[in-house]
Design a binder for these strands. Structure first.
Lengths: 105, 105
DNA sequence: ATGATCTGCAACTATGGGGTTGCACAAATC
DNA sequence: GATTTGTGCAACCCCATAGTTGCAGATCAT
């Protein structure tokens, strides 16, 4: 059913600050320090969030000289969406079946 | 962008126990007590999880006599998946644009 | 009416996680 | 070489939350 590594991704997406980071990264790669300039949180806090996002494969680090820029991996987001879609469809199907049985068809 | 109520849904989906509950409910409506019989957690814990799931519209309470059964709302899951899909596509599009610019096309 | 069962609310514990400050270190800049 | 700027690590605070126990109130069965 591949629900294995899916839950941590949702957990990662269940935080407003991380969405802010993803939104900021959506306008171009950026380092933790650069992000700290735009968001109302410390660089260290952002670094932790980036670690979480990297852990679940939503973001990718890229060394540029002495700084580390991060890039959003859009495909991972799409994958997650498709897997969620599949589960939703499966549920709809199953619930329809249950409803039929309940109505005695 | 409708990212408004989306984050809490992901937060709700970012917990293994809640997925267990959803999986159990996928095999038919059940009450908190019934669920407590199958899962290795207390009824009260399950009740809290059900409250969270209801809060974000993933589940729906149905009074049956003295007990309260819960039903999965598959459409909410599908909606969430579609919205995530849309965001993912948007990102892919934007990142592709950025890449083009970066490569000087 | 009594007992069994299911729900609801409340208090309490404890672990995790978001956030901070502080410092040490690496790498550009001057 | 000295200074700046960016990263990494560690300790710490604080609050949200997953989980528990305990009890009171409904509701169904006998």
């Amino acid at each position: 059913m591949t629900t294995g590594t899916l839950v941590p991704v949702f957990a990662a997406l269940g935080d407003e600050t991380r969405w802010s980071i993803l939104a900021a990264l959506g306008e171009g790669d950026a380092s933790a320090s650069a992000l700290a300039g735009r968001l109302p949180v410390t660089r260290q806090a952002i670094a932790k969030h980036l670690a979480v996002l990297q852990e679940v494969g939503l973001v990718e680090p890229i060394r540029v000289g002495r700084e580390v820029q991060y890039r959003v991996i859009g495909s991972q987001l799409s994958d997650t969406a498709r897997r969620l879609e599949a589960i939703g469809a499966e549920w709809d199907r199953r619930l329809a079946t249950i409803k039929e049985i309940a109505e005695g068809l």
